[in-house]
């Protein structure tokens, strides 16, 4: 079984594809890949491929934030991406992934939502981030989070006519983006820590801590995953790795 092999290798300080523990697979980023979306990105980590499309609409604000735009993040694990994915409403893994990406964007204050009111209290911009998994070969979260950030950075705001309706196909400025959160999932097997797991490596992980880090090294979201606990003293090491590595990935985002 390939996962037993992956586990043995990790325990001996090696990986199935010969990478270093803190080395990502080769990363490819393409911007504006979907013409019908207001913002979009394609991100590839090795053979893992994710497309994120951003659609912009207008709507009523939430009552507790009358002067802020609305951000909504969803993820679809499309059946074309993996034999394990099934058609139908999002399962718990897709919902969890979307909610972690959402927290990274929202809590980092990446988008200035308070600048997205059209008529305060009545009408605001809604930003819909839809994550589409195209090919699952591991580490969907980090790829999806990166693709979401890139897509939001190139998102255009539609033009409004005098009555405040969207003029289709015409644009007026960009989405106000001020921070760049980067999500790094630190994986743990025994006392070994490594990044960017392949699909085989994901099957043998004890636990994983996903950490979103801003450019000022502040931490804006975390989620522990995997079905074993993490030794209390390990957490600091994992946070250090995430902060360090986030700098490297952020350089890929223009």
């Amino acid at each position: 079984m390939i996962e037993t092999y992956a586990l043995e290798l990790i325990q001996n300080g090696k990986r199935v594809d010969g990478r270093e523990f803190t080395q990502f697979r080769d990363i490819e980023i393409k911007e504006n890949v979907i013409e019908t979306a207001e913002g979009s990105a394609y991100v590839r980590f090795g053979n893992t491929k994710v497309i994120v499309g951003v659609k912009i609409g207008t709507g009523a604000p939430f009552p507790d934030t009358p002067n802020e735009g609305i951000l909504s993040v969803s993820a679809e694990f499309t059946p074309l991406a993996s034999p394990e994915f099934e058609a139908g409403p999002p399962g718990e893994d897709a919902i969890e992934l979307a909610r972690i990406v959402d927290r990274g964007i929202r809590e980092s204050k990446m988008i200035e939502l308070e600048k997205l009111a059209i008529t305060p209290g009545e009408k605001v911009w809604s930003v819909f981030v839809d994550i589409y998994i195209i090919d699952n070969q591991g580490n969907l979260l980090d790829a999806a989070a990166l693709a979401s950030v890139v897509a939001l950075m190139n998102t255009r705001l539609p033009k409004l006519d005098v009555e405040g309706n969207i003029v289709k196909g015409e644009y007026d400025g960009k989405l106000p983006v001020v921070h760049k959160p980067i999500t790094i999932s630190v994986c743990k097997v025994g006392d070994k820590l490594f990044l960017d797991p392949t699909k085989e490596e994901e099957l043998v992980i004890d636990a994983k801590l996903s950490i979103a880090v801003r450019e000022d090294d502040k931490i804006c979201a975390m989620q522990k995953q995997g079905n074993k606990g993490i030794e209390f003293d390990f957490i600091e090491k994992m946070v250090d790795v995430a902060i360090e590595k986030s700098k490297e990935l952020r350089k890929l985002v223009k």
Binding site: S108, K218, F232
Partner: peptide
């Protein structure tokens, strides 16, 4: 001494996080 749930949202420095833990 095993942590089994850890989620976070907001803005914290690493030092604040460690103190909170």
């Amino acid at each position: 001494n095993l942590v089994t749930l850890l989620q976070m949202d907001g803005i914290l420095t690493k030092e604040e996080l460690m103190k909170l833990l």
